[in-house]
Amino acid sequence: MKHLNGFEQKSFEKQDDKNRIETMLADLNKDGIDDVEQYVKNIRNRESQETQRLSFRLKMVEEGRFAWLQKIAIIILWYLLPILYVVGEKTRSYFRFLLGVLAASWGILVESASPITWRRTVKYEFKRSLGQVVCGGFFSTFFTATLAGLAVVSQAIFWLGAAGLTKMTGPILITVLVREVAPILVGMILLGRNGILTVTECSLLAMGGQLKSLTTMGIDPFITIVLPRAWAFTIGSFTLGMIFGTTSLFMGYVVTYALGTMQDSIWTFYSNILSAMSVADYVLVPLKFVVMGFMVGVGSCITGMNVKVDDEPSTLLPKGFTRGIMLIMVVNILFTLDF
């Protein structure tokens, strides 16, 4: 076997470098850069201008008592800026989704106010999505509410009765179940049953090129897909929330009545619950469901439509789920803290 000596190896390496450079230049030509030499010269000029800027800025500092301090600050900032850029970029990327959801939410509210938005295609998609959300989530909500009624409501009634705090049953059930537990559970059902489906559908449309085809046909995907789904999730969340609240309280009552812990009639029980609700509860509890449903709907659509080329179901679906959970918790915490 013939081996290359050192000299021949170096000439081969030089040839490799030359071929590599020629390939790079040919690629630049393909991108429409006609005068490659001028292009390379422009890059070199720009690079030399960048290095000159620091010395230029140091020269511009006026002589004085604190000139040395100013120069040190300029040098530190000069080298710190790339680090700050990286940190800022990472921070912005984490907040990008939240900011995107807020921007899309505003867009939906503005567009929804215009009558020309509600075309037949938008209404069709709205009806279809609403049917999916409510009918698809009904049984899950019913069973979850039954379990919540058995676990939370019946236990609360039993132990409060045992402690002689029967009068506290209404306020505690309102505070714990209706205000806090119900929105989170309904949000998770909504996210699991319909949010993930929306993420999948939207990502398939985005990756398959159908969104672009829709735009080519003059059909705005934001108006036709995101807007109606957001409103379907909003109304669906409210509906499922009401079903959850009523069912869980009813089931809790049935269990405690069967066990003999509760002697009141169902109407007296409900009346006690309702009298424990303040005026603010009548507004804030439904509002919480509405806002949460809206955010889950918008978040799912945005996650699906912003799919990247290297995203797969194993990365996209967990991303959609965690983002949805984050939105549910943000909405719940904001309502809890502010009200």
């Binding site: 559908e201 398939l204 449309l205 398959g208 090129g209 159908q210 672009k212 085809s213 829709l214 080519t216």
Partner: peptide
């Protein structure tokens, strides 16, 4: 469209 013209949903 030669492709991607149909919405499967």
């Amino acid at each position: 469209f030669q492709r991607n013209g149909w919405m499967d949903m």
